[in-house]
Simulated scan of single mutants.
Amino acid sequence: MGTGIADPTGNITLSDPARIALEPGIYAISYQVSALLAASGFMQVSPYYNGSPHLEYGIYFMTGSGRTSAAGSVSFLIEVPARTVFTLTFNSPVRATEGTLTMVIFKLR
């Protein structure tokens, strides 16, 4: 991941290319992923924050036969009671290439 526009308040910071630190508060999060899967299978992307995975805000895409493009998007609100690290976990039994991720995080008042 990379930063498009840095949060001047410091509430949302990119810790490293895979982790985002969120300070306490309520956040609106939206993300979209896509990839080309080399064979039949699935793509699963799950957010992790507040010390646990959250499958209810994940993306699951099952493909048909052969090389297939897989995509999904989700938007949700979360409450962060204490500083937490937000990550996305990608899981697939088949090789994925040409993947993209777009994520937008807003801290609400």
Rank of each mutant, 00 (worst) to 15 (best):
N50G: 03
T13Y: 02
A39L: 04
V85D: 04
I59K: 06
A28V: 08
R95V: 13
P8D: 12
A28R: 11
S34P: 10
T84M: 01
M62R: 12
R83W: 02
Y49K: 05
A35G: 10
L77T: 04
M43N: 02
S46W: 07
I78Q: 03
E79Q: 14
Q32K: 11
S73F: 09
P8N: 12
S92R: 07
T100D: 00
T13F: 00
E79I: 06
F61S: 13
D16G: 10
L77D: 00
R95D: 07
T97V: 06
E23S: 15
Q32F: 12
E79W: 06
H54Q: 12
I59R: 08
F86T: 02
E79S: 15
S15P: 02
A96C: 12
S92N: 04
S46V: 15
L36Y: 05
A28N: 06
S40R: 13
E23C: 05
T87Y: 05
L36Q: 13
T100L: 04
L88Y: 06
S30K: 12
A96R: 12
I26R: 10
Y48S: 12
L22P: 11
I20S: 00
T63E: 02
I20C: 01
S75R: 13
E79A: 15
A18M: 03
A38Q: 14
F90E: 02
T84Y: 00
P8M: 12
S69K: 15
T87D: 01
I78G: 03
A35R: 07
N50H: 05
S92W: 08
G64F: 14
P81V: 02
P47T: 01
A38E: 13
P8V: 13
T89G: 01
A35P: 05
S52I: 03
Y57P: 04
A82D: 00
S69Q: 15
S52W: 02
P81K: 10
L55V: 14
S92C: 10
A28P: 01
D16S: 15
Y49M: 07
I59M: 07
V33M: 03
F86H: 01
S52D: 03
G51P: 13
M62F: 08
D16M: 15
Y48M: 09
F90V: 02
E98Y: 08
G41S: 07
M62L: 05
V85L: 12
V45L: 07
S75T: 15
L77M: 11
S15N: 12
T87Q: 11
I78N: 01
G64R: 14
S73V: 04
D7H: 05
L36N: 11
A39D: 04
Y27A: 06
F61M: 10
G51T: 09
G72Q: 09
T68A: 15
Q44F: 14
A28F: 13
V45E: 02
P81T: 02
A70F: 07
G41F: 11
E56K: 12
V80A: 14
T89P: 00
I78H: 02
G10Q: 04
R83I: 02
I26F: 04
A96Y: 07
S92Y: 04
G51V: 11
A18D: 04
A18N: 07
G25N: 04
L36K: 13
I20M: 03
T97A: 03
G99H: 03
T100S: 11
S34M: 12
V33R: 05
P93K: 01
F90P: 00
E23A: 15
A21E: 08
P24R: 09
S69N: 15
